[in-house]
Design a protein around this nucleic acid. Structure first.
Lengths: 134, 134
DNA sequence: GCGCAATGGTTGACACGTCAACTATTGCTG
DNA sequence: CAGCAATAGTTGACGTGTCAACCATTGCGC
């Protein structure tokens, strides 16, 4: 239990330090990654939220900040005017690209001490915990 | 990586929900547990922080709130007037006691899907990650 | 077509976590 | 013993998570 929390905090900080070089936080990075994956179609606000682990109010403000920094564009959807679609813009894409390499390295380093077997076992155990904590 | 973060978030919320019945957060609960363990000797602020995973400013304010709710007493240490000692008081102890049982149950439930072997394996893997992320 | 519940978001308020800057003490060093 | 670095803690500012309350828009049922 405690080990889980401590380990995750450590990991989060490690990756946070990688992205902060670009003046961004880990959560903001995650949102941008999701938007990059969505491509030209864009994504409604809550859809982004559901791909993270967060409640909507957090998402709204997260995107407020990304928009203020000029990495994201938002527009009310014409078909369903309740929705607000979000896109990553070129500046955001460029910034993400600059992080791809360092993030991949950090990823390697973070789990380099585990064998492939260890990793898949870890994943199975974590999945089991989540499946059981319904 | 992602599994680690998702699982921990889930766990944190699960335990958070248990303690919120007493009008307390998980972090506040952790501080009180540490203070209960310290007994009559009390603990200096930063010592509490080092047993959690947090930087000092967070601790100061965490304890501000605990003191405001009447669960903790603070006093400047006479021997080293830089330090501020903290003690849990009777009201805090009573509140903690009320949580012992539900927390133990939640603990059982949270990991009930894992065998003893699985648990020790998980702990080993997590320890390995922390040891390697130096 | 009207009424109303459901859906999609936003705002306000509060608890954290973290960084940087600052105060108060200690205690070492010359 | 004067001076200064190290230690203990606090304050300010900002990003993030979460709850509750709220507004706008849709779309279903009658």
């Amino acid at each position: 239990m405690l080990g889980l929390i401590r380990t995750t905090d450590l990991i989060r900080r490690t990756f946070g330090r990688v992205v902060e070089g670009q003046g961004i936080t880990l959560q903001q990075y995650n949102v941008l990654r999701i938007l990059r994956g969505a491509g030209d179609a864009g994504l409604p606000t809550l859809e982004i939220g559901s791909r993270m682990i967060e409640e909507s109010p957090g998402i709204t403000r997260l995107i407020d900040r990304l928009e203020a920094k000029g990495w994201v564009r938002r527009e009310r959807c014409p078909h369903d005017r309740r929705q607000v679609l979000c896109w990553i813009n070129p500046a955001g894409l460029a910034m993400l690209d600059a992080l791809d390499e360092p993030m991949a390295e950090a990823d390697d380093r973070a789990l380099s001490m585990l064998s492939a077997d260890d990793k898949s076992h870890l994943i199975r155990l974590l999945d089991a915990i989540r499946a059981g904590s319904r």
